[in-house]
Design a protein around this nucleic acid. Sequence first.
DNA 1: TAGATTGTTAATCGATTAACAATC
DNA 2: TAGATTGTTAATCGATTAACAATC
Lengths: 248, 248
Amino acid sequence: MGESDNNARTLSIPESTVLRLPVYQRILVNFERRGLNTISSADLGRLSGENAASVRRDLSRLGSFGTRGTGYNVATLIRQIDRVFATDQPHGVVLVGAGNLGRALVQSNNFFGHGTQLVAVFDADPALIGGELGGCTVLADEHLEAEVRTASVHLAVLTVPVSVAQGVAERLVTAGVRYILNFAPTTLHVGAKVTVRYVDLSIELQALSFYERDDAARHSGTSIGTAGITNAARSPKHRTHRSSAQPR
Amino acid sequence: MGESDNNARTLSIPESTVLRLPVYQRILVNFERRGLNTISSADLGRLSGENAASVRRDLSRLGSFGTRGTGYNVATLIRQIDRVFATDQPHGVVLVGAGNLGRALVQSNNFFGHGTQLVAVFDADPALIGGELGGCTVLADEHLEAEVRTASVHLAVLTVPVSVAQGVAERLVTAGVRYILNFAPTTLHVGAKVTVRYVDLSIELQALSFYERDDAARHSGTSIGTAGITNAARSPKHRTHRSSAQPR
DNA sequence: TAGATTGTTAATCGATTAACAATC
DNA sequence: TAGATTGTTAATCGATTAACAATC
């Protein structure tokens, strides 16, 4: 595509690519730490579990930063991916729910950062309120609206029980939140202008156990029923990451 | 497709469908609790955030259990989805890593079950060893191989730090594990016969913040660069859930 | 019968990947 | 020049969805 894209700030990047860039970034940072200056799409593919052609296609979305015959400059690629996620201008995020999962996310030291910054934590449990988490004091639930408004936060991470998830989501949206990462295993019904991204951890294990059974049935010929079992159901591909926006 | 599929036990079910069935199941169980006997694809779609046609297509993989003009019997659907995940014959799973995330998964009361059963928990931290988690005593790391072998476990959930993930994965595989749900943000290099499913939580938030910025740029016309910003990068669709198998 | 809703067809769309010309 | 590797084309594949005949 055109030379005019060279210094483009915001390019059209497919979701599948957006989800893979952080994986590449991790590998690149490792390479840099080890003092390696260049990397080929073949290596990056091997290390990320992706097809080399996919890697090249993904990286070509950032611009044309490779060198034929040589590969990609590691530092350049890191800089370009940082640019996509604007890691130098992080967006504020509030975390609602300071239970096990909320704490696990914060303490992973890997969840926030990379374009986001935790600015407030809320919980309803008096035992947690006043405690410290990720550099924030855990605030009582009822201060949620005020804080979100004064800090002009548009992003929220929801790690609350299912029973209160919808209510909290509504309050967040009223206070100005437009993007919610929802860990509660329930569908949120919010306005069409709000983007909800769902992470349902239990589904992952269910899927894996389904495949264990499916493979076993296939290999042992133990199809208890009659159906022909095709391989179509199984695509031993790459590391996909879930997307999703609002239910209608 | 044939009538012979009617009582098929293992049908070819696409990954995208496998990942949505648990969502439907949750909604169906809610319906049943509320004493509702039937549900239409339109309702199930609204409640799950999916297109009604997708719902029908998904459910048709289970067989032909709907009634034209009426909808689906809730109890029947629940039974059929349970059958797909063989919830009556759960597979054993070991959890390696009893830190915040491991505990969050177990205590969610939603992660195990649905076709799986937690049979052992391991950790390397003496402070955690001997404690109780999900009905299991947290065992010392070094007992991992013996336990996996004697219990003939094929499924493992990895919630350990990145630094030890590869080593633990290798030990699990040697002991007979064939399916790994990996929460450590690193690619695991195991044999081709082992299926690894990756859940990288930090990527989810990065993606969401990318879209926040992307939307802002699009709407304010603040394209700092030159590129035309298309809508193609954004597909406000459904609740997808990540897949993935082994890197090659 | 009239209304509602399924199950499936066919069109569309996006994502993956082999292949290869361009070029370092 | 010879070898290596990118960037892109084109083929393929799977997933989504509108539309509608079938049918309760």
